[in-house]
Design a protein around this nucleic acid. Structure first.
Length: 755
RNA sequence: GGAUCCGUGGCUCAGUUGGUAGAGCGUCUCAUUCACAUUGAGAAGGUCAGAGGUUCGAAUCCUCUCGGAUCCACCA
């Protein structure tokens, strides 16, 4: 054996050994209970980072259960990650001076496909580097047809059961990304802004958005507010355009804020929209989906809201309607992806009625059918589930499966269409206006997107002719599904659940579902875990996993989140090549507390590399001692037994301490205290076994005391088993190097028992 | 406006049913052709944020205060 452990010499070879022997692929055995983890699917466009390296936690559980002899499945996959990937791709396009508007959707889709395909395979390779014992024979990609077909089937089922509807509601719209988002995808940031006090004739109001006054439909005051009691039912006048609007009373208005009077703009504010609904007021937009002003005075029309605000203030000032300006700190919604300010806009979207679907989830969580670790996340989860809002599942992007709905253009001539004409020019307009100048085929070929009015008729099945008017001018909805609509069904689709005919679900599904553990970063508890619970219970009446294990994010040694802009990113693959995958893995596990930030630094990885080397050298020492004693195969040495003649006190003590260590490591893994488990084996092997026991037995070994050698070999080999889930490569490498008659692999060795 | 987490040696963090404080890195002193210098032996260094309470006993449980972080929520 070499003097130091050189990880890069072994890792690839060891991984191949495991993979070739099919150790990662479990066999279905109905006499045994399986252990299953579905890998949180990484984004296909995303090369590996520390967050992925944390899958080590899952690998530890998986390797442990495999060693317990359970049929163990860890199922890998990758997500097309709709908005994320399209966003990254559009940035690439921008570098070439192009944008998404230069392509018809078919072409754009194909381009993104090719782009995502490259990294998807890179990612697989990278996970192998870290030793993850994933069953690659069951790998899935979110856009393969067997997955997508089931997702579409779920959509149809939801629709038929009355859970899907189209609605024209206030949605979070990013005019830069050109799509709506769900509430969860909006970030909130604090912003220094101004509150403007405006004169509306009979009443004064305060607003942060003067550019939207042109589509005000009312002024609201609190019904308890004595100052304005007499004004309710009277009129106010919008400045600049001098339009009369009613003054109404609504409890949502806060008496203490501003002047106590709120301008109601249902087209551009969530609260206003709700107030408008209560009072039967119409909602009018003054900002388009391109982020430009309409329905406003000519000099403002076409401006971006920011410029429009300045212009409006200028006009207000001129007319003496701007009473005062006051600084205000408030929070605004921004696009989680591009950081642009989110514009609440009125837009027809597809929604899932979620409250009735959340109900069984709440019950299951309360009953403990799915448990949470750490337990505090259960409360967080339940709070969210109990206050859940309808889910906007449509996105105005191309990257993802299209919503399977077909509109007849002749029945719905008000559908707005954007397409590239035969000369490659971008044309937009209502079908009613376009159909005389462009053939249906030309529109269909160059189609970018369509927007159907909320009342448009549609069919969920594709048909050649419209059942009403026999027209063949049918176009599929161009909106795609929210990525989480697809990934929310991941445990079902990847295991082979059949939505239309559950009886026909695969053997895998019948055996491995519900899965054992879902381990993920807590910040997608709602996005993903929540949706998986909803879909799982809706479709199968069973929870998708028995335990949700939440872990935290990896931060640098200053406690800061790693980001490219801060330049504090530690690349797991660089570290793994430099110090070994085992050292990297151990550094992510050693000394961490459940769901607390995980601090990694190169120093810590080095410390763990040193530990790996220690393990290696203990093996080297024992092998050397065996040679000195003329033992060619370690199986030639008598087996250790508690009543072995010649056992000394220190032998009995090390055995006793080792048994304690087995208990600590086992308990640690069982109870998800991986930090404690790894510390226990580290402490024992280095400071107890090597520093004390080995040092003390050196004299005896010189005297050719075979009993000491038996104890050494026994404790060491069993320790390798205990350490294997944490540091799989080095332990297997040593195991393979110990000379013996029967070739076995450590990965499938039995987990050491206390008794 | 609700809710959660954190505050332990110079730095980064462990410390699972309460029993006289631990690790890694750093510092200091020794040792060393011994399996390993990616080493060994040893040392210095903490009133466990502060105050009060429960207890025979609290870093650990309860209350409050201060400081830091995060999540949720339609504050114009």
């Amino acid at each position: 054996m070499e003097k130091v452990y050189e990880s890069q010499k072994f890792e690839e070879e060891i991984y191949q050994l495991w993979e070739k022997s099919h150790y990662f692929t479990p066999e279905i055995d109905n006499k045994k209970k399986p252990f299953t983890i579905i890998l949180p699917l990484p984004n296909a466009n995303d090369p590996m980072h520390m967050g992925h390296a944390l899958f080590t936690i899952e690998d530890i559980m998986v390797r442990y259960h495999r060693m317990l002899g359970e049929p163990t499945l860890w199922l890998p996959g990758a997500d097309h990650a709709g908005i994320e990937t399209q966003f990254v791709f559009e940035r690439e396009l921008a570098k070439q001076g192009k944008s998404r508007f230069d392509f018809d959707r078919e072409t754009l889709y194909q381009r993104i496909w090719d782009f995502a395909e490259k990294n998807r395979h890179l990612n697989k390779f990278q996970m192998k580097k870290l030793g993850f014992s994933l069953d690659w024979s069951r790998y899935h990609y979110s856009l393969e047809s067997e997955i997508v077909n089931q997702v579409l089937a779920t959509f149809k089922k939801l629709f038929n059961d009355g859970f899907v509807y189209r609605g024209e509601k206030m949605v979070n719209y990013c005019t830069r990304c050109g799509t709506a988002f769900s509430d969860l995808e909006v970030d909130h940031v604090e912003k220094e802004d101004f509150l403007y006090f405006l004169d509306y004739g009979s009443i004064q109001i305060a607003t942060t958005r003067p550019e939207t006054i042109f589509v005000d439909v009312a002024i609201a005051v609190n019904p308890e507010d004595n100052r304005f009691k007499d004004l309710v039912g009277k009129k106010a006048v919008i400045p600049i355009i001098n339009k009369e609007i009613p003054i109404i009373a609504d409890e949502a208005v806060e008496i203490d804020f501003g002047t106590g009077a709120l301008k109601i703009t249902p087209g551009h504010d969530m609260t206003d929209f709700e107030i408008g609904q209560r009072h039967g007021l119409s909602a009018i937009s003054c900002i388009t989906f391109d982020g430009k002003m309409i329905n406003c005075p000519e000099e403002i029309s076409g401006l971006y809201p920011k410029q429009a605000r300045e212009k409006t203030l200028e006009l207000l000032q001129k007319q003496g309607k701007l009473i005062k300006t006051q600084p205000l700190k408030h929070t605004v919604g921004i696009c989680y992806r591009c950081k642009n300010i989110i514009e609440p806009l009125l837009s027809p979207q597809w929604f899932v009625k979620i409250a009735p679907l959340a109900k069984p989830v709440i019950e299951a969580a309360k009953k403990g059918q799915t448990k949470f670790f750490p337990t505090r996340f259960k409360k967080l989860f339940l709070d969210w589930m109990e206050n859940i809002h309808d889910w906007n599942i449509s996105r105005q992007i191309v990257w993802g499966p299209r919503i399977p709905a077909w509109y007849c253009l002749d029945c719905n001539p008000e559908i707005k269409i954007n397409f590239l004409d035969k000369n490659g020019n971008l044309v937009s307009g209502l079908y009613r206006e376009l159909k005389d100048r462009h053939s249906f085929e030309e529109i269909k070929k160059g189609l970018q997107s369509l927007t159907a009015p909320v009342k448009a008729t549609f069919k969920i099945e594709e048909e050649i002719n419209c059942p009403h008017c026999q027209s063949s001018h049918l176009l599929q909805e161009t909106d795609t599904f929210d990525t989480w609509f697809l990934s929310g069904q991941w445990p079902l689709t990847t295991l082979g659940y059949n939505v239309e005919n559950p009886e026909k679900s695969s053997e895998d599904f019948k055996y491995f579902y519900p899965t054992s553990v879902m381990d993920t970063l807590w910040d997608i508890l709602f996005f993903w875990v929540g949706r998986m619970m909803i879909f799982g219970l809706y479709l199968t009446k069973e929870v998708p996993f028995k335990l949700v294990h939440l872990h935290s994010r990896v931060v640098d040694k200053k406690g800061q989140k790693m980001s490219k802009s801060k330049g504090n990113v530690i690349d797991p693959l660089v570290m793994s090549e430099k110090y070994g995958a085992d050292a990297l893995r151990m550094s992510l596990i050693y000394g961490i507390a459940p769901a607390n930030d995980i601090v990694v630094s190169e120093e810590k990885i080095i410390a763990m590399r040193n530990f790996a080397n220690k393990i290696w050298n203990i093996g080297r020492f024992i092998l050397g001692q065996m040679e000195e004693n003329g033992i060619a195969n370690f199986e030639d040495l008598p087996a250790y037994q508690d009543d072995l003649p010649g056992l000394q006190t220190e032998d009995k003590q090390i055995i006793k301490d080792f048994i304690e260590t087995i208990a600590k490591v086992t308990q640690g893994i069982e109870k998800y205290h991986f930090g404690l488990a790894s510390e226990a084996i580290y402490e024992f092997l280095w400071h107890r076994f090597a520093d004390q026991y080995i040092e003390h037995t050196k004299e005896r070994l010189k005297q050719k005391d075979q009993v000491a050698l038996i104890v050494l070999r026994h404790v060491y080999l069993k320790s390798l088993m205990l350490l294997h889930p944490f540091m799989p490569f080095i332990t297997e490498a040593i195991w393979q190097r110990f000379p013996r008659k029967e070739k076995t692999a450590l990965i499938v060795s039995p987990w050491p028992k206390v008794k």
